[in-house]
Write a protein that binds this DNA or RNA. Structure first.
Length: 414
RNA sequence: CGGAGUGUGGUGUAACGGCUAACAUGCCUGCUUUGGGAGCAGGUGACUCCGGGUUCGAAUCCCGGCACUCCGACCA
């Protein structure tokens, strides 16, 4: 894409109404613009990143054999009354609205009820199990306090996956497998090293669940690292004698150091609660009717986008990992329009995603914008570089570039 | 939901209760310039968040809203 065609512009200064690093940088560089507290508009660069993150998640879920669906945001009150979760006393972060005739509706904050109801149409035999389905969709939660830029919103993007098994054993196999699937995603996002599978209390569904916590000062949680090699931690909130006993851990709380962390995913064992409420049952080998054993698995692409920025920046701007960068290459033309245009075409023809800064701007401004936007590779074409034998190739994460010949460029970037 | 802070051109800031609300940046014109937001000249752009009140006079003080940010509570 040619930058002269990109309608967004960078700002010289960070917005005054944001403090979190992710919101500041993403706004300053023109990736997002805030609509209300906790809800952001995604602009061309921002949407490209969000889609890349979503696609990595999608790819890993598909590889795990899950099937993608897309459920409604509008929710039927009757459905949620079956599990008692329509009540504001039980779930206090509903956004509710109504039809013109007065019928109450909710905006979905999760989809256990909906998917259990859907699946009851299709599951009837043990032969139908196990399987899982997921969606990537906008969720609405009436948070009493939105904060931390993209990381805790009222309207946000969520991947939610639901598993359906014959019994607890079969579920446990899938549940364990999902831990690896989740870690694959975090590895591909470049945050695997800092991400820990974190034991936490299970919410209202089961005794324990797992969160995935990524170490960062920008996080809301505090975790204790239990096993560095296996990437196991315990959430400080849930640290107690019972949990130590149940997980067979001998730890001295006084010797543990707390680390701030961002919750980047969570997986729950749901059991029979939803299948029973929606009559989601199957006939086993002996013809006996049994409820399906369910699990749910959450992960938010928009929060991950914020987390990636929190983890990857310097004083000049964002430093995107290659896997999620809006473009792979930022091509800057400094008074060498013709040659730059040729290189641009050549890169495009080779399927390399390139943002071409063809604007009539000073070198300093182009460099500053390039650093702020944070595309992994910068290619500068100028009289100077051409006289030295080619173009300058520099990684955003590194200080020094090198001159490479135009003929070698595609090979180096492919 | 409790507490605190902030609200002024597009953006970032300034202005004792008192002149036509200032400066920088952006944007537009022209010239100049082309490896780190360069320079010169001219121009554009604000019911000072909203509604009341005090006052001869309010961006400024008072009251009530609203919005945003932060701390805390909450977070299937």
């Amino acid at each position: 894409m040619k930058q002269s065609q990109l309608f967004t512009k960078t700002r010289k200064e960070a917005p005054k109404d944001e403090v979190s690093k992710n919101a500041q940088l993403l706004t300053q560089a023109g990736f997002v613009v805030k609509e209300i507290a906790g809800a952001y508009n995604y602009l061309p660069l921002g949407l490209r990143v969000l889609n890349k993150i979503s696609n990595i998640i999608r790819d890993e879920m598909n590889k795990a054999g899950s099937q993608e669906i897309f459920m409604t945001a509008l929710q039927d009150k009757e459905t949620w009354e079956k599990t008692g979760r329509w009540s504001d006393d039980v779930v206090d972060n509903w956004f509710k609205t109504q039809l013109k005739n007065g019928t109450e509706l909710g905006l979905g904050f999760t989809h256990e009820e909906v998917i259990a109801k859907i699946m009851s149409n299709f599951v009837s035999s043990y032969k139908d199990l196990p399987f899982s389905a997921y969606q990537i969709q906008t969720k609405f939660r009436n948070e009493s306090r939105a904060k931390s830029g993209l990381m805790r919103g009222r309207e946000f993007f969520m991947k939610d996956l639901y598993s359906f098994c014959k019994d607890e054993n079969e579920h446990n196999d899938f549940y364990e497998k999902m831990k690896d699937v989740y870690m694959n995603v975090f590895n591909r996002l470049g945050m695997g090293e800092k991400t820990y599978i974190t034991i936490s209390s299970g919410g209202s569904f089961s005794k324990y669940s797992y969160e995935f916590q990524t170490l960062s000062e920008a996080g809301e949680d505090i975790v204790y690292i239990v096993d560095e090699d296996k990437k196991i931690a315990i959430n400080k909130e849930d640290f107690n004698d019972e949990i130590l006993k149940d997980f067979n851990l001998s730890l001295d709380k006084n010797k543990l150091e707390g680390h701030r962390s961002i919750e980047v995913g969570d997986i729950y064992t749901l059991g029979y609660r939803f299948s029973e409420a929606f009559n989601l049952t199957f006939k086993d080998e002996e013809g006996k009717e049994k409820p399906v054993f369910m699990g749910s698995y959450g992960m938010s692409p928009s929060r991950l986008m914020g987390a990636v920025v929190e983890l990857n920046s310097d004083e000049k701007g964002i430093i995107w990992p290659e896997t999620v960068a809006p473009f792979k290459v930022h091509l800057l033309s400094l008074g060498a329009e013709k040659q730059a245009e040729e290189i641009y075409n050549q890169l495009q023809e080779n399927g390399i995603e390139v943002l071409f800064d063809d604007r009539d701007k000073k070198a300093g401004e182009k460099f500053a914008d390039s650093d702020l936007i944070g595309i992994p590779y910068r290619v500068v074409v100028s009289e100077k570089s051409l006289s030295q034998g080619g173009v300058e190739l520099k990684k955003r994460a590194e200080n020094d570039g090198k001159i490479v010949s135009i003929n070698d460029l595609v090979g180096l970037l492919k």
